[in-house]
Amino acid sequence: MSSDDSGGGDESASSTRNGRYLYCVVRRDDDAAASFDVSGVDGAPLTLVSAGGLSAVVHDRDEPYESDETTQVRDWLYDHQSAVERVGETFGTPVPFRFDTIVRGGDEAVRAWLDANAETLNEALTALDGRWEYRVEVEWDREALVDRLTEDDERLAELDDRLADASEGTAFLVEKQYDRRVSELVTERRRTRSASLDEELRRRTAEVVELGDAPQTPLTETPSGPTARFAVLADDDERDAVGSYLDTIADEDGASVRYTGPWPPYTFAPDACAPTGEDGPGPAE
């Protein structure tokens, strides 16, 4: 589709793509659409493209956003994010797209895509209705954890005793065994803690996704303790129920809790949607 010299930067050539940058899909609401006034990435005016009972929020854009400047990209992300939230305020919980999703073929291609995926999108909107995404991150203080674990564990008590009257050489070995045992216990404790968190969150919310133990964007040099992270999909009551639960665990094993949201339900959006069928992107450049 894209010709060899698509990187040439000829503006008239790229504009033949007739691209649309996608923010989210919402239930069609013609009244709300009449007074729709939201701006998107870099202040771009957003429009609604509707097909059947669905509307996609878009702006005209042919090329993906790309920059080496951190602050620039960060601002784009915030722009995208707040646009989706503004839309959600008016139209209800949206099905959000990933950043920088651009299709070619103009409004027509967007309509065709909405039609082709109407069932999936309608189901998703129903499931998400009235709910938003929240993020739960629990980090246990390693030292507090170790203190607790060493109190309880017989094996460690035994190693401690041996350490007390060991010679220097033996002490070294015993210490190693001791450290290994502590690591085992910490890992095990994280696992059981994480499993019970998962269970408790599931009991209180519509859906839970475990996110693994480390954020992909580490903000401090090293995670200082074992961590468990979740995304939950919750309505207002469920949100408070999670809050109450988190309050009860906030001090266990020196746990610190991060609870953020509401976010558009990016994590709970349908994975991937089908192609439009062979509409064709229009005449070649």
Binding site: F99, T101, R104, W263, P281
Partner: peptide, 18 residues
């Protein structure tokens, strides 16, 4: 925000995508 917008959200697998 970074994680949500870059890792999550609907992805379109179709030849209409740029």
């Amino acid at each position: 925000v970074v994680e949500l917008l870059l890792d999550k959200g609907v992805v379109i697998n179709a030849d209409i995508v740029v």
